[in-house]
Simulated scan of single mutants.
Amino acid sequence: MRHKHGYRKLGRDSAHRRAMLRNMATSLITHESITTTLPKAKELRSVVEKMVTLGKKGGLHNQRQAASYLFDKAAVSKVFQDLAPRFKDRPGGYLRILKRGVRFGDGAKLATIEFVDFEPKAKSE
C-alpha cells in the first residue's frame, strides 16, 4: 500500500518539478481553470489550496510567502484580494478536478483543474 507515501515525482528532478508546479500554480490562479494531465493536476491541487489558505490568513508575512512561490505579482494580489474573500466561509476544498479523457498523441489521462465557483465566460459572437 502507498498510503501517505510522499508525493508524485512526475518523471522530473526536484528543481524541474518545483518550477513546473510554480508555473502551473501561477497560471491556475490567473486563469482560474487549466487543462493538464491527471497526476499533475492532483499534485497542483495541494499547492494552490495552500496559496488560498495563505490568502485567507492575510497579513504581510503570508503575502511574502505567496510572492516567493508564485511568479507573478498580479497572481499574488489576486489570491489576497479576489480568491480569499470568495472562499472566506469555505473550510477547504477550493478546487475541483474534472477528467477529460486521453491525449491523442501519447494516451496520457487529461484533466481540467478549476476553482469550485468558476464559471467560464461565454464567447461573444
Rank of each mutant, 00 (worst) to 15 (best):
H3K: 13
F118V: 09
N23F: 01
R22W: 02
F115A: 08
M24H: 05
L83D: 02
K42G: 03
T26Y: 00
E119P: 01
K4G: 02
P120W: 13
G93I: 12
K40L: 05
H3T: 09
P120D: 15
R103V: 04
G58T: 08
L98D: 09
L44W: 05
L70V: 05
M20Y: 12
R2P: 09
M24D: 02
D72A: 12
G93K: 13
L60E: 09
P85G: 10
R2S: 07
S14T: 06
V116N: 04
K88P: 01
L98F: 12
T112V: 09
M1H: 09
K56T: 08
E43F: 11
A25Q: 00
V76L: 04
G55W: 00
D82F: 13
K50R: 08
K78N: 03
E114R: 06
I34M: 01
D89C: 04
K4Y: 06
K73I: 03
K88H: 15
F87W: 10
S124R: 10
V116H: 04
K123V: 14
P85C: 11
R90K: 14
Y7E: 09
F71Q: 11
R103D: 12
T35V: 15
G11W: 08
H5I: 04
V48P: 00
E119L: 12
L21C: 05
H31C: 06
F104W: 08
T53N: 13
I34H: 00
R96C: 08
